[in-house]
Amino acid sequence: MTDLKEKARILDRDGIRRALTRIAHEIIERNKGTEDLVLIGIRRRGVPLARRLAEKIREIEGSLVPVGILDITLYRDDLSSLHPHPVVRQTEVNFSVKGKKVILIDDVLFTGRTIRAALDAVIDLGRPKNIQLAALIDRGHRELPIRADYIGKNVPTSRRELVEVRLDETDGEDEVIIQEKS
């Protein structure tokens, strides 16, 4: 790994909270309530984001939506070029997705390949009514025809840059920073 230099802080604790609050409202509005709604976070940082969104939806609508965890390692398209292989962790979706409106949640939307893998993984669990995508950051540079339905913040970046989302649950702080390879 090359050295990384911190360039800018694009969201702080309050910024993340406001973005998630807005996304929660948008999800409820777009789906006309929470009926048949399920949230699935993509490991790793999509998982705490999914839990936070579920909590916000509960505050707004008073109803609990199920939260699942998706590990997409086995669906990656670059496994043969990775050695040693990445650690496979558990997918924990303890409810049926059949006929449900699935909101996929990830921290950063970049090439779209993670989402492509996640779509396959969700569909292997059952046939949902539809799948929507929420991302805290959309940094562009898509390599596949994929877009998000809910975006916390659009951040134009160069490919040399790295967007890092840090969350209390995984990193002990809440912020989004851009780093540059020096």
């Binding site: 086995l74 990656r76 670059d78 496994l79 043969s80 070029s81 990775l82 050695h83 040693p84 292989h85 496979v88 970049f110 090439t111 390949r113 993670t114």
Partner: peptide, 15 residues
């Protein structure tokens, strides 16, 4: 099979 059927070198992770 998953752990043994790999190959090549680790490249920059684009995900």
């Amino acid at each position: 099979l998953y752990l043994l059927a790999g190959g090549g070198d680790r490249h920059e992770n684009d995900y």
